[in-house]
């Protein structure tokens, strides 16, 4: 059945057993919503220099948006900023592909569990759900690094 291409086992696993859920200490916090469906996420990032030491989050939403936040946490925590940005951009590219990108080995190496979302990209209404936490992370990161810049300048 086609549904299985969206609801991959990996996605349902992350949905039922999310990684790193709950709000912890962070350098910046953002709240993002998906106004068409009411999905919401509050997300915090914590940096140790340019290393991501934590991404914590709380939210409500469908299996796709919740699983995506869990995958994000698993993938990005511990990474260097530049590498995390590459992962984010690759994920964005995959999600905007309208189902046309068949992830190859190189992409799988970058995205790991997140390749499971390839099937979601065929459903325009759900792409936003999958991207919600990733956009929130990008926004929070910009704010955290802005703040760090400002601190350096005033120091």
């Amino acid at each position: 059945m086609k549904l299985d291409s969206m609801y991959q086992e990996v996605i349902l696993d992350h949905y039922k057993n999310p990684h790193g859920r709950g709000l912890r200490d962070g350098d910046a916090e953002v709240h993002h919503v998906n106004p068409t469906c009411g999905d919401e996420i509050t997300l915090r990032v914590k940096y140790d220099g340019t290393t991501i030491s934590d991404v914590s989050y709380e939210g409500q939403g469908c299996s796709i948006s919740q699983a995506s936040a869990s995958v994000l946490n698993e993938l990005l925590v511990g990474k260097e900023l530049a590498e995390a940005q590459k992962i984010q951009e690759t994920f964005l590219e995959l999600m905007q592909s309208k189902g046309k990108i068949e992830p190859d080995d190189a992409m799988e190496d970058v995205l790991e569990d997140a390749v499971a979302f390839a099937g979601v990209s065929k459903y325009p209404a759900r792409v936003k759900c999958a991207l919600l936490s990733w956009m929130a992370w990008k926004d929070a990161t910009a704010q955290a690094l802005d703040g760090a810049d400002a601190e350096r300048k005033t120091a």
Binding site: M1, K2, L3, M6, T36, C37, G38, D39, Q60, G61, C62, S63, I64, Q66, Y123, R126, C129
Partner: peptide, 21 residues
Amino acid sequence: IHPHDVGQVLDEQGIAVRVGH
């Protein structure tokens, strides 16, 4: 079960409902 997921599985069976707020 989140309404989005309900709506998606119903859609697969040809049933059009609305989900959200």
